[in-house]
Design a protein around this nucleic acid. Structure first.
Lengths: 326, 326
DNA sequence: TTGAAAGCGGTACCAA
DNA sequence: TTGGTACCGCTTTCAA
């Protein structure tokens, strides 16, 4: 690995001059520049980002903290973040917290130690407090308005939509799944659904979940179909649990959507691949990632930020676990 | 952010001494150590990794290069890599290449500029050549033996298994999908299947695909069912295409697996969630990630490496797109 | 057992 | 328009 010193020697100039042509600032005569560029090419020199980062006290690195990239919700989001950051020449330091506070704090510290210029966090667990004294801007993804900068989607409205569609499509005895309290976005969805249902003429019941896992969905579905065999519509907390419910329903011989309508939330990729394909409330996952990155970039560059809380719209995706509307 | 100098001042010692207690080497008297530790705690000091990295010419960072995290195959792999690296205190710099050589080279360069201590690459496109003059060890993931260090699974044997199972379960007119030439692992699978079929008494045909996307799977399925309506078994290149085929088959009224058996490759998470769930050849995706990380760690630590090419076993996963064996 | 100081590879100020 | 050099925060050698 060639260094700036070697380039300077070969070009017969000082390191200061090399630095000038590298960063394209200060005065450099044309033929001096030429000499330096030749030397750079001959040596295959690339500047050491670490040295640069040390002096400037900032890098081209951004930290991205996710609960678990293995959850199909997050890869799309990560991709949105990356694609947007890449345009501006930023790179990702990346970690999964598994919703463990210890892991989360550990990653945050490591990111900071490595001079990241910003942080995007999509975890549920951590309190704002853990991010408060950081020397760098932070954007929270997929969580509500309590934090200073955030990008999320309109869960409340999504919950409303889900309930409205279920009723419109004929369900009269609904079951609403309620996600665990620490998953904030799931709470908003739930509230939205409840609001609509409470104002309507249908019966409904609420089942609380301890996690949004497939396994948990399966066992809750079992419970629902056993205890309330006349349920004709289920509003799930996300697509994973909706998928589990669909699975269980099919395996015990329910006809979907005739016997039971099912609606999910998120619209992860696989939801359209199920058979029957899953009707759901779509979050613009990829765009959420992009918006978060765009917001962070503005913060990094200390540009004016018009909105510090960016709420994106959700939409109903009509597929085959809900009935045709008459 | 406190610096080592501030710690030294507060503790009334030199920075050299602070460094010694930090790294736990050299002689430090017990009460000196105490003073330093107190100062560290009072100031909330954490060492600057960038400065450390600059001097030592190595970091705690590892580069991970994937084609696309959005492809459900890769998150699990990435998780395996991360979980193993984390144990040793390494962190991930991460990028998606989209199989673009330009992006790939760009990421590699950035990784190197940031002093990564090692690299794991799961891309298909890039030639070994792009990695040859790197100053750091590289492990190739999910690709064959041409490269110096690699972790992959036994695609050839997997391809054989797929064909054997299809025949055993009664298919007599098989269609084998062949992935694009640049996706090396897909070629091996294909070769394995072909070998078995060629030695058997069944009819078979080969359809070449230009990509392993869902869309392409859908259109090839259409073609197959139109042109060869008597096909009673399809061996797909991966689970994504198998899913597309399943979809198309169901939508035109085929009964699965009675009319047509379908077998995939990979066993990505969603395959078990389909209805009917997808029979497939399972790659130990998570373990592949872990093994790659373990191998890289050995290389980084310059420990002896017993095997530079790690081939993991695949297995047949019997689900509901293949028939019960009599 | 401790401290002074050189050096890692850059950037940027100041003087020439 | 250029070069010398201090400095970023840390590690390590050498001398005390």
């Amino acid at each position: 690995m060639a260094t700036i010193k070697q380039v300077a020697e070969r070009a017969g100039v000082s390191v200061a001059t090399v630095s000038r042509v590298l960063n394209d600032n200060g005065y450099v005569q044309l033929n001096t520049r030429k000499k330096v560029e030749d030397a750079i090419n001959q040596l295959g020199y690339v500047p050491n980002e670490v040295a640069r980062s040390l002096y400037k006290k900032e890098s081209r690195l951004v930290g991205l903290l996710l609960p678990d990239i293995t959850n199909p919700f997050f890869p799309e989001m990560a991709r949105g973040v990356e694609d947007e950051l890449q345009k501006e020449g930023f790179y990702l330091l990346f970690g999964n917290s598994d919703e463990s506070l210890e892991r989360e704090l550990n990653y945050i510290q490591t990111f900071v130690q490595n001079n990241v210029v910003g942080l995007i966090s999509a975890t549920n667990l951590a309190d704002k407090i853990n991010y408060e004294n950081l020397p760098i801007p932070t954007v929270f993804l997929d969580r509500g308005s309590q934090s200073e900068y955030s990008v999320y989607s309109d869960g409340f409205e999504g919950g409303r939509m889900a309930a409205i569609e279920m009723i419109k499509r004929g369900s009269r005895k609904l079951t609403v799944l309620k996600g665990p309290a620490y998953v904030l976005p799931a709470q908003e969805r739930f509230q939205g659904s409840i609001e609509v249902l409470a104002q309507s003429d249908v019966d409904f019941q609420v089942i609380s979940m301890n996690s949004l896992s497939f396994q948990e969905g399966l066992s809750k579905a079992q419970e629902i179909f056993e205890k309330f065999p006349d349920t004709d519509g289920i509003i799930a907390s996300n697509d994973i649990t909706a998928t589990a419910i669909l699975h269980k329903a099919l395996s015990i011989g329910k006809v979907i959507p005739n016997d039971v309508q099912i609606i999910g939330f998120d619209d992860i990729q696989q939801s359209s691949l199920l058979f029957p394909s899953l009707s759901t409330i779509r979050q613009p996952i990829y765009d959420m990632g992009r918006e978060a990155a765009k917001l962070l970039i503005k913060l990094i560059k200390k540009q004016a930020v018009e909105k510090s809380h960016i709420k994106l719209d959700v939409s109903y995706v009509n597929r085959n676990t809900t009935r045709k509307v008459r």
